[in-house]
Amino acid sequence: MKPKILITRKIADEVVSKISEVCEVDMWPDEERPIPREILEKKVEDIEGIFCLITETIDEKLLNNAPKLKVISNMAVGHNNIDINVAKERGITVTNTPGVLTETTADLTFALLMATSRRIIEASNFIRNGNWKAWAPMQLTGQDVFGTTIGIIGMGRIGEAVARRAKGFDMKVLYYNRNRKHDIEEMLGVHYTDMDTLLQQSDFVVIMAPYTPETNNLISHRELSLMKNSAILINTARGGIVDEDALYQALKNNGIWAAGLDVFATEPVPFDHPLLTLPNVVTLPHIGSASIRTRIKMAHLAADNLINGVTGKIPAHVVV
């Protein structure tokens, strides 16, 4: 008998076919909306594996409903949606999809940096709203990117990829990480520093750290007060790393110049969120890895992790 698994969102047919060769598949048919919690709690009762997204909270209550569960395959690098400790206690393998989304997410990060610094969205809307009457010397002027200083908080795979792009713009690259990376410093010419110095000296501060209890609200009032008035904050990691109330105050009171955000503490971000009222904030709906090729690669990797987990093999990318 094939092991029974649940896929919590409609994914590409080719990936479903791969899983179906080995498993009995139950898939939530909606591509856009997450599976409702009450339905998820019912469907996990007799499954051995779950293919999930960051939109599903896999907590102790849910795991209590899943006595047969062997593997949780998260289609993401981050896994803060899963109670790792409870899964480990119960011998449930948790997997993720690192590597395949590195370059795509770095592309998006740098695109967001450029769009924010040069006011691209604001300028496009300026035309669409019929406001462009004449060329003016200081109209929609932004901040330079080439030759400036970028500070990267979190020098993992994606942080390294952002640093490579920054070097192409002749930027001085500072970084802060839990562990110093001498090999990356030698290879890319980046400079390790403490976080306070990074915040004080950087024209762009880019958040690349994972979300953990230690990084919750890592950037708050104090940290924002250290940044230059002309500095720009970019976050494509996780929303909870930045204290959004503190960021709103810093932006509103000219403590920093602008912010580019692909992630929020609550997603989807509420339409009446204060940050959405500010003209110096560029917002995106968590699309860091959203290229067609990368999302298909992520789904295939998550499928491979799932199949290996339910058939007694060791998946390639195990978190616990």
Results as ranks from 00 to 15, higher is better:
220 S>G: 12
204 F>S: 01
196 D>I: 13
183 D>P: 07
193 T>L: 11
206 V>D: 03
185 E>S: 05
174 L>K: 10
205 V>H: 01
177 N>G: 08
203 D>M: 01
194 D>F: 07
190 V>Q: 03
206 V>Y: 07
204 F>A: 01
226 L>F: 14
183 D>K: 12
212 T>S: 03
189 G>L: 09
205 V>A: 00
219 I>W: 05
203 D>K: 00
214 E>R: 12
222 R>P: 10
170 D>G: 10
182 H>W: 03
172 K>I: 14
184 I>R: 05
173 V>Q: 03
182 H>Y: 03
229 N>C: 12
227 M>S: 08
213 P>F: 11
218 L>T: 07
212 T>V: 07
225 S>L: 02
194 D>S: 10
169 F>T: 09
198 L>Q: 00
185 E>I: 12
216 N>Y: 12
206 V>K: 05
185 E>W: 13
209 A>N: 00
215 T>D: 00
189 G>C: 13
223 E>N: 05
199 L>T: 01
189 G>K: 12
211 Y>V: 08
173 V>T: 06
216 N>S: 06
170 D>W: 14
173 V>N: 01
212 T>L: 12
225 S>E: 04
176 Y>K: 08
171 M>W: 13
220 S>A: 15
214 E>G: 06
185 E>R: 06
215 T>Q: 02
197 T>W: 00
213 P>R: 06
220 S>T: 02
202 S>C: 05
176 Y>W: 15
214 E>M: 11
197 T>Q: 02
226 L>P: 11
229 N>W: 06
215 T>S: 10
184 I>Q: 04
174 L>G: 11
188 L>Y: 11
191 H>G: 00
196 D>F: 09
226 L>C: 12
218 L>Q: 09
220 S>R: 06
219 I>E: 05
197 T>K: 08
227 M>I: 12
196 D>M: 09
207 I>G: 00
196 D>S: 15
192 Y>E: 01
192 Y>C: 08
193 T>D: 03
225 S>N: 10
207 I>W: 00
207 I>M: 05
190 V>W: 04
224 L>C: 02
203 D>N: 07
220 S>V: 03
170 D>F: 14
